[in-house]
Structures are given as C-alpha cells and as structure tokens.
Amino acid sequence: MEFSQSVIDRVVARQGCLHPYDHFKAAETAFVVVDLQNFFTQPGYLGECKAARATFPAVNALAAALRQAGGHVIWVQTSADGAEKFWSHFQHNMLAPKNSARRLTELSESHEGFQIPNALRVDPSDTRVIKRYYSALSPGSSNLHDVLQAKGIKNVLVGGTVTNVCCESTARNAMMLDYVTVMVHDTLSAVTPQEHQASLEGWLLFFGDVLGTDEVIARLRTD
C-alpha cells in the first residue's frame, strides 16, 4: 500500500522509521478478524461492503500462516440482539426506522446475516467472539480483552470490514490497551477507497503500523 510522502515523513520523524516491528512471535500474536459476516459482505444485506469479498483470499492466507506458525485466529461477529435497548440511541436516532428494523433482524444471531461466509476458512481451533458495539474492546462490548489476555497475546493484527468503523475502533482500543497493533491493509475494506486510505493514513500517523499480508507473514517467528 502506498502512502503520501508527507505522511511517511511525519511518521519517520516521530518514531525514527516507517515500520517499527521487525518480527512477531507467533505464539503471542492474534489475527482479529472483525465483522466478516454475511450482513457486511454479501449482496442484499443492509450493511454490505462490496469491497470486503475481495479481501477473503488474503484473510484466509494470513489465518492459515498464523495457525501454522502457532499463532491465534479470532473471528469477531456483531450481534444486534437486544440492541434496541442496550444501544438505543444508535438504533433509534442514527438509523431510519426501516433500517433499524433490518439491522435488528439481519444481525440477529438466529439469522443467516450473522454467519461467516463459507468462502472464509474458519478452523475448529479458531476462537469466536461476539461483540455489541463498533469496537470489540469498548466497555461492555465483548470479552475480547479477556480472551487475548488468557492466550498471552501481545500482538494484535486487525482485518475485516469496514476499515474506518469497527476495525479502526477495535484497533485503537487495542493500541491503548498496550497491544502492539497492526492494521493489515489487504485484509481490510471500506465502502470507498478514499475512506480506506484515509483511515489507514490516520492510523499510521498516530496509532500503529500498517502492513500487508505478505509483510506480516515474513515477520512471523516461531521461537
């Protein structure tokens, strides 16, 4: 992924280099895949991000490489069950009534929209986490932090959709909980290329690194 020279110059001036992490110990690394559910990736659903489907091969490749190296893959899924109460201002004020009703229906855990598409290879050894808000690490959203702590995770690789909403929200919280946090750009997608680019530029400037799947795999260490 290419960044403007001005962004690169600011990052290097702040931290002395563009990419500060030369390796990741696989056993201490988790690939956190956010919201790659039918609701957010497949045609006909309210939350469809068309670009998400193109990221599936990279998501599968990174997940497979990390498993093989002894790392961890965590699939985070949004559930809207009860959201009319626990997130009432969003459901009732930020969505038109028909869209609110569709979200509650299509993101219910009993609906096919909640499920992960068959094109994504989920392994029985992987962990699944259910979240309620944009960030999986905001208070009351999920048990992701507890899961990461129990596994001894120090490095969090973030993929999924959409880049500038749930993925970035989760990644920001991970960084501020002192995890080494990397946005893996080719496993991420947004509704427009401009939103994807802007999100990752802001991330690189202030929060953590941005790497591609091949760059992450090259940095994985088993010892």
Rank of each mutant, 00 (worst) to 15 (best):
M1T: 07
Q5L: 12
V7D: 11
D9I: 06
R10E: 15
R10T: 05
Y21N: 15
D22M: 01
F24M: 04
F24P: 02
A26K: 03
A26Y: 04
A30Q: 08
A30S: 09
V33W: 00
N38L: 07
F39P: 03
T41V: 09
G44Q: 08
L46Q: 13
L46V: 02
C49I: 15
F56S: 01
A63P: 00
L66W: 07
Q68W: 00
Q68K: 15
V73D: 09
V76P: 03
S79I: 01
A83W: 01
E84I: 03
E84G: 03
K85D: 15
K85L: 13
H89S: 13
P97H: 06
K98R: 12
A101D: 15
A101E: 15
A101H: 10
L104G: 05
T105P: 00
E106L: 04
E106P: 00
S108A: 13
S110R: 14
H111M: 06
E112H: 11
F114A: 07
F114G: 04
L120K: 00
L120A: 01
V122Q: 14
P124R: 10
T127Y: 13
K131E: 10
R132Q: 05
Y133L: 12
L137C: 14
S138Q: 13
S138I: 11
G140L: 07
S141T: 05
S142A: 08
A150W: 02
A150V: 01
E168D: 15
S169E: 05
R172W: 11
A174Q: 14
A174K: 14
M176R: 13
M176G: 00
V182L: 12
V184G: 04
S189M: 05
P193E: 12
G202T: 10
W203H: 10
L204T: 11
L204D: 12
L205M: 10
L205G: 02
I217F: 07
R221T: 12
R221I: 02
D223T: 10
